[in-house]
Design a protein around this nucleic acid. Structure first.
Length: 548
RNA sequence: GCCCCCGUAGCUCAGCUGGAUAGAGCGCCGGCCUUCUAAGCCGGAUGUCGCAGGUUCGAAUCCUGCCGGGGGUACCA
């Protein structure tokens, strides 16, 4: 039980003592939050305002009674309480409580903040990036990569069993166009209408096509080209600290040796009675499950749509035993959400097992204008370009700072210019600074100080209390970030924590301070800060350097 | 037309499962290195939280409508 949970429990107990009804199924839940202004206490609760209608008494009167109840329950942890505004109960905690809290954080060790899902862990497959293998990864692909990877790290940290997967769309018209483009370039011709114009296509042509061959095999070239491009993508992602557990080939769904996954999907859909034929095509009646129009599975020319293979693909994911599927899709695919969920229902599966995160776009701004990002025309900023311009840490932090449902404008000129001012360095600097201080104090001394429980009963400075609060909140920040699928909250938290540590560093001498008990306490506080910063950065796969 | 996301400081964006005087980074103005890392710190200026209603003791946050930006709306992927 965290110190915050203990506070919440005390408030709930106090409320029950005042006459609030509560059961295990329907507990009494009040807010417990850090007020914006320090004079409003360490924590504030709206419990009295929630109780007022039931107890039929003024909220402020209830707040006083609640505070008295808390005094009995919290003992020397509570310093004082105040009733404020319409009926807030502001809680001021004693140094005793703050010391116990730091002891709790230190005692939790490296796992502090994680494990919230360990009681009910799920097998989760996170599928992300999955960019068409018709060219190198763009900077936008980098956003998907950073997001999906950070999400996977967070889910693992919470206690889930997570795998990362990349779906390779190595089948269909785009691949055919790639093959045709390679053939055209090998002859020194322009690519056909709608083909791929990037310089890498000419390189592939040079590499793959025998110049003496009058009739190059377009399909074979496409396949070889895809293999090379996928290798490049894998390498780029690895450099970006993103490694997938599986690379799933769409083509494999169309091959019989895979059990004929697509025909199996048709059978499953037909068994549910949700398919029908019309205009020589096969349709899925997705309108029966919330979609706004029915969707084609097999076109009148006999070819399967992407939707059909996607259904087979998701059936395969479920067959592999994943309880939860998280797909990270670009904003241009949001129209597919309803039909994919409808397909789940048509298959008799639970649509809630499929969770689709829609990632908004990345606009690259260069010279004050929005740069084109057309993969087909080949005039895009690649992820590896971005990495070599600003580095992995800055690139990841930049991508992860913003919410996934907010469009990101990435100004390349600014990014280059300000990469040295990227907030990520502020966080990393705080970490390096702590390591430097702890090293100065001596490793053995730090080990001794952090093992000292209970911590020495020293009086605390405001900056120490503030830092302890920030450290403690890591657990709830992680939980929040996990449930909202919002890694950007971790980035924001890391920055805030670094700021709190810096304030502590400014106000409180650590090494050599007298008495020695104070030094011990502060070493413990510094070490806890170091661990949490490293952990938060680790969730984002950003380095926590010892020296800068 | 319908669907999704966004509209908060000069810029880029947090905050949005309701709380008290709305935040960060960058940029701007002025200060700080003989003391644990100045990639730092301190002080200062900057807002009709797109607009209008509604719900509430309380709305940037929830609901409705409107305006503006982006995306989607294929027997493409």
């Amino acid at each position: 039980m965290t110190p915050l949970d203990q506070l919440r429990a005390a408030i709930a107990d106090a409320a029950i003592a005042l006459g609030q009804q509560a059961t295990a199924e329907e507990p009494f839940v009040a807010t417990l939050e850090r007020p914006k202004r320090p004079e409003f206490g360490d924590y504030s609760t709206n419990a009295a305002m929630l109780l007022a209608p039931k107890l039929k008494k003024p909220p402020r009167e209830i707040a006083v009674a609640l505070g008295e109840q808390l005094e009995q329950r919290l003992g020397e942890s509570l310093k004082s309480f105040e009733v404020a505004g319409p009926g807030f109960l502001n809680i001021f905690l004693a140094d005793h409580w703050h010391r116990d809290t730091l002891a709790y954080v230190l005692d939790q060790g490296e796992g502090f903040g994680g494990g919230s899902a360990s009681g009910a862990p799920e097998r989760i497959l996170v599928e992300f990036v999955s960019a068409n293998p018709t060219g190198p990864l763009t900077a936008a692909g980098g956003r998907h990569a950073a997001y999906g990877d950070a999400l996977a790290r967070m889910l693992s940290f919470a206690g889930h069993d997570v795998q990362r997967e990349y779906y390779i769309n190595d089948h269909g018209s785009q691949i055919a166009k790639l093959g045709a483009s390679i053939v055209a370039r090998s002859r020194g011709e322009d690519v056909p209408e709608g083909g791929y114009e990037g310089a890498y296509v000419s390189e592939l042509a040079l590499q793959l096509v025998d110049a003496t061959d009058p009739e190059p095999d377009s399909d074979a070239l496409a396949e070889q080209g895809v293999a090379i491009i996928v290798d490049g993508i894998r390498e780029t992602l690895h450099g970006f600290r993103v490694d997938f557990d599986t690379w799933f080939s769409e083509r494999s769904l169309h091959q019989d040796e895979n059990g004929g996954a697509i025909s199996a999907a048709y059978k499953a859909l037909e068994a549910g009675g949700a398919t029908f034929a019309s205009d020589d095509a096969t349709w899925l009646r997705t309108t029966a499950y919330g979609d706004d129009k029915d969707r084609v599975l097999r076109r009148s020319n006999g070819e399967d749509t992407y939707f059909a293979s996607d259904i087979a693909y998701h059936l395969d994911k479920r067959a592999r035993g994943f309880q939860r599927l998280i797909d990270v899709w670009g904003a241009d695919h949001h129209g597919y959400v309803a039909r994919m969920k409808a397909a789940f229902t048509a298959l008799g599966d639970d649509p809630d097992a499929l969770e689709i995160v829609i990632m908004q776009f990345v606009n690259i701004i260069e010279h004050g204008e929005r740069a084109s990002m057309s993969k087909r025309r080949g005039d895009f900023i690649t992820l590896s370009d971005l990495i070599s311009e600003i580095g992995v840490d800055a690139a990841r932090f930049l991508m992860l700072q913003r919410s996934h449902d907010s469009t990101v404008d990435l100004d390349l000129d600014l990014a280059r210019e300000q990469s040295s001012e990227n907030p990520v360095y502020y966080v990393q600097y705080a970490h390096a600074r702590i390591v430097s201080v702890l090293t100065k104090a001596d490793v053995a001394r730090v080990g001794e100080a952090t093992a000292l429980l209970p911590l020495p009963a020293v009086a605390l400075e405001p900056a120490e209390r503030a830092l302890i609060h920030k450290l403690l909140s890591f657990s709830s920040e992680v939980d929040d970030a996990v449930t909202r699928r919002a890694p950007h909250r971790i980035a924001a938290y890391a920055l805030e924590l670094a700021q709190e540590f810096t304030a502590f560093y400014r106000d409180c001498q650590i090494v050599g301070v007298q008495p020695v008990e104070t030094e011990s306490f502060r070493l413990g506080l510094a070490e806890a800060s170091r661990r949490v910063i490293a952990c938060a950065l680790g969730l984002l796969a950003v380095d926590a350097p010892d020296v800068m």
